[in-house]
Write a protein that binds this DNA or RNA. Structure first.
Lengths: 218, 218
DNA sequence: GTCTATAATGAGATAGAC
DNA sequence: GTCTATCTCATTATAGAC
C-alpha cells in the first residue's frame, strides 16, 4: 500500500487517507489533496470526478482490509484456544481501526458527503457484530465466559461503541491528536475491561496494557 | 425556552438548536436559519456576527443546563439512597443529552467551526466525570457497589463513552434519525448494564428499560 | 431592529490546450 | 495524463436604506 513509486491514483488515495485521518474529510479541500499529492487540482479530477468518489474508493480498501481480518479470525477461531483467538482478533481489529480511523471518527461528515456509503457501512457492521457474537457464544460454550444471552447482547453493543468511539473520545476529552501505541493499548484495555466481569476466574486475558489505568497524555 | 412570543434572539437560538439537532450545524446554512426563524439573513447577522457565535451562545445555555443537573444531584446525593440518587442523576443527564444531542453527535464539525469551545468542553467533561466518580465511590463505601479503584476508573470512562456516543451509534448503525422515548430507555439500559456486574446481589437497579434487549427500530 | 441589496470568499467542478 | 484557466455555486458577511 505504500511503495516507492506508486501510480498517481494510488498516491492520491494514500494522501487522502493520511489527510483525512489527520483532519477529517470535510476539512480537507481538493486543493490541499492535489498539492500534497504533488499534482494539479485539475489532474485530481481526472482520477476522481467528485470528492465523494475518493471516499468510495477508500471505503472499498477499508472493506477489503476488514474482511481480511474477519476471515483470518474465522480460520483460527475454530481451531486453537477460543480466548487467544478472540484476543488476536481484537488486536487486529484495533490496528485496522487505527489505520482507518477517520471512518470511525468522522461518521457524521462522511454521511453528509457520501450518503451512498451509509448502507454499506451498516452491512459491514452487521457482519462484524455477528462475528463477535458468534465468537463470544463459542467462548461461553467452552466455559471461558459466563454470561446470559441478554448480557452478551448488551456486551457486544457496548464493546462496539467503545471500539468505534474511543478515538474520538481521546481527542475531544484529552486533546490527543496524535495517537501512539500507548493510546492504542489503553483503548484496547478499555474494551477488554467490559468482558472481565464475565470471565471465569482463573482465565485472565493477561494483556499487558490492562496495567495502564489512565489514558496516556498527548 | 419555548414561549409564545419570544425575542428575535431567542427565536434564532431555538431554531438553531432544532435545526442543529436535526442535521448538524455544518449542514445548516445561515440562509436556512434566517428563513426558519422568519427573519432576513441580514438581520441574523445583527444578532450573531458569525455562525460560530451562535454555537457559543448555545453552548452557554447547554453549560447552564448541565450545571443545574449536576447541582441537583449533589443536593440529593448526600441525603437519600445513593443508588436512587445515582439513577435519578443518570436519567436527568440522558434527558439533557437528548435535548442537546447535536453537541454529542457533531463533535468533529463543532471543533472545526468553533475551536474556542474545545477547552470549555474539556472543562465540562472534567467536572462531569469527577462528579460521577465521586458518586460511585460513595456507593462503594455504602456497599451498593463492589469494585476496585481501577475498575471504577475504567467503568467511569466506559460509561462516559457509551453515554456520549450511543446516539450516533443508533443513527449510523440502525438508521435511527428520530429518537423516541424507547430509544432513550435503550441507551439508558445500555449504560446501566456496565454497572450491573458490580452491583451487590440483592440491590437491583430495577429500571424498566432493562427489559429491552435490542434497540427499537426506526 | 429589521430589511434589501450586494460584496467577498472559497470550495467543488469542468473545458480544453499540451 | 497532466496542466492552465475558468465557471458555478453556496455561504458568510457587510453597507446602508427604512
Amino acid at each position: 500500500m505504500s511503495e516507492v513509486s506508486t501510480s498517481t491514483r494510488e498516491r492520491i488515495l494514500d494522501v487522502c487517507l493520511r489527510l483525512f485521518n489527520e483532519s477529517g474529510p470535510a476539512a480537507v479541500t481538493t486543493a490541499e489533496i492535489a498539492r500534497t499529492a504533488g499534482i494539479n487540482e485539475g489532474n485530481l479530477y481526472y482520477y476522481f470526478k467528485k470528492k465523494e468518489d475518493i471516499l468510495l474508493a477508500l471505503f472499498e480498501a477499508f472493506e477489503a482490509a476488514l474482511n481480511e481480518v474477519a476471515n483470518a479470525s474465522q480460520d483460527t477461531g475454530d481451531a486453537g484456544d477460543g480466548s487467544d483467538a478472540a484476543l488476536a482478533y481484537l488486536q487486529r481489529w484495533f490496528r485496522l481501526m487505527w489505520a482507518w480511523r477517520f471512518f470511525y471518527r468522522d461518521g457524521a461528515a462522511i454521511k453528509r458527503m457520501a450518503p451512498g456509503l451509509r448502507a454499506r457501512t451498516v452491512t459491514l457492521a452487521d457482519r462484524g457484530q455477528a462475528d463477535i457474537k458468534r465468537a463470544l457464544k463459542q467462548m461461553v460454550k467452552r466455559g471461558l465466559l459466563v454470561a446470559s444471552d441478554e448480557e452478551l447482547e448488551r456486551l457486544v453493543v457496548n464493546a462496539w461503541i467503545i471500539s468505534s468511539y474511543w478515538l474520538d473520545y481521546l481527542d475531544t476529552r484529552h486533546n490527543v491528536g496524535r495517537v501512539t501505541r500507548d493510546h492504542l493499548e489503553w483503548g484496547f484495555a478499555q474494551v477488554l475491561s467490559l468482558f472481565l466481569p464475565y470471565t471465569r476466574p482463573g482465565v485472565p486475558p493477561a494483556f499487558p496494557a490492562s496495567r495502564r489505568k489512565s489514558p496516556p497524555g498527548q
